[in-house]
Design a protein around this nucleic acid. Structure first.
Lengths: 188, 188, 188, 188
DNA sequence: TATGAATGAGGTTTCATTCAT
DNA sequence: AATGAATGAAACCTCATTCAT
């Protein structure tokens, strides 16, 4: 792992634990095992680091989401697939998923283009569009559906990580969550 | 408006705009038109200010929510009522509503009791419990329903405040939002 | 002496000795016997301190120059008077006089209005104008005369402070200097 | 232009614009289009660069000055010649001329021998000495005359570069300047 | 000769907080 | 209750310099 990546990894851990303000750049450098100046060699400012970290996580998520699109006809199982994949990614990458929320609630949010912000949703965007066209989903503004889908994912994630559940409970919650989202979106 | 209230009002505006870290106590005092020391005369620490602001907003919201509970029998219209009331409050008090989310995402979160955090939800809690018992809502863990309900409200709020809509569009979104939440929760 | 004045006095001493760059704000605070933050309480930035110091010195010099104008008719002795007063002020306030040169050679120069820069020259400006009108001085652009007058004063000052002369030698140099300047300017 | 020369040229431009402190070595390297390390490959330290630049400019000036000394008998036209040549060089090489002043006001000054500092003045030194001997110039300490001559040249330079004059005005100022200097120095 | 990542000491500035008035 | 000068720890960032390639 390059020093730059070490810095990003350490920053993620510390930002998630202590918040942006609670994390001094010196602390990041120290825990990453690099000199203070090295951090600023790679990222001109703390803000640049914060944003770069966000962008890199979004890219990673987008790639992960992209990896499940084996083009299809029926959207329903595909949609379910996307849902499960997202939740699983969130659970397997809790810090990263939490960081996304942290960042998007912060004033840094405005530093990033909408494109970056929505890039992992392309798959979903296409599915939902197709779903509406086929009258499998309700005919509502696509952005609204996406926004609500995302808040729900975040809600389920929160509920999952608050209570420390067994694997079985976890699966139950995930399944329940899917049904609720599906009930919310499906055409009737 | 007393100096203390001026401080709270200014703090709200600045915290929402620039985040907790981005807002120096000196800036709050200055914009509130009081001396630096005055702020600390009313709030022993910055943290105390942050928390007091949260608590006061929550109380205000709780009172507002409480004002619509004329004891209930039928839950459905009541539930709808609560939803509309919440969204309207959020739109009429954007900064305050956003501040709630900001605070709850922040490390300050742990400074506040669960009771305070959920106090405005009592009505909702009772309604949902009753709704499940009466088989009007789906039988799922009450906390899960509450969490998802809240994320959805926040999602709708976000969608509403992002696009600058006309009053008519706004009403449409609010109505759509209700239907979606209701579809998600209702017994079938 | 107020803390603010202590800071200014210490800054003068250190800037003259070590240059702007060679003087850390922390060093100024320390030698002035105040806390680091106190310096920044009074001067928002180091640059503001540098400029404020310049302005205060210029004001002091302007006041000192103003104090010798007992309005007169004959300009020649008056002019001589101004010359001697300036040189004496420079020798009695070496740090301050040197600081003026330091500042005006530095990039900070552009932070200050022309008015501030020339304020101590009002007396001189009037005298020279009058001198030209009366055909006692050569008819050249007033700004040019002022500029050359000033560079000469600075040259004489440099020559005086380079060699460590006796009081007698010093007087001789000062007298010589006057004659040279007078020869340069006088109508013929 | 070799990389070394590119570095010197860029350093000159930046030092003159932003001062020594305001100019980071990294900035110089960047603007010169070379790598950071390359600068230090050619100049062991920043100070070495600053001094080397000064020395090279002084050499250039000395050579330029030397080019007009075809052994002399009459000093007056020769003297005038030297004056015009200096002013013209200063105007044709503003950054370089300004840099000389900058350097000599700075703490780096002490890094350089008197010989280097006065090398371009040899011609002048000889002329003035001769002029005094022949009773064409006033009998004053040679160093004093040199110092005042130099401050005057600098004064004229400043006056010329401040106002943006036409070529005709510029010539007038240069001529006036010569007369003033000559009036100041000539035996009477 | 040329590069540019890496360094870490040290600089400027911020800021929550205190306290005498 | 209200003030604002004073504090000093700690934050962010700069920068001359080194060194392996």
């Amino acid at each position: 792992m390059s020093k730059k990546q070490q810095i990003l990894a350490t920053a993620l851990k510390l930002f998630v634990t202590n918040g942006f303000h609670g994390t001094a750049t010196a602390k990041i450098a120290e825990e990453a095992g690099v000199a203070n100046g090295t951090l600023f060699h790679h990222f001109k400012t703390k803000e640049e680091l914060v944003v770069a970290l966000y962008v890199s996580i979004k890219e990673e998520l987008a790639i992960s989401m992209g990896s499940i699109t084996h083009a299809t006809e029926f959207i329903t199982p595909q949609f379910k697939n996307v849902y499960y994949h997202t939740i699983e990614w969130a659970l397997a990458n809790r810090d990263k998923f939490y960081y996304i929320g942290l960042f998007e609630m912060s004033p840094y949010r405005s530093q990033v283009s909408n494109e970056t912000m929505w890039q992992q949703s392309i798959v979903l965007y296409q599915l939902i569009t197709e779903g509406i066209r086929k009258k499998l989903l309700q005919p509502r503004p696509i952005d609204m559906l996406l926004t609500l889908y995302n808040s729900n994912i975040f809600g389920i994630y929160q509920y999952l990580t608050r209570g420390a559940n067994s694997e079985k409970e976890r699966q139950a919650v995930i399944n329940d969550g899917y049904e609720m989202i599906w009930d919310m979106l499906k055409f009737r």
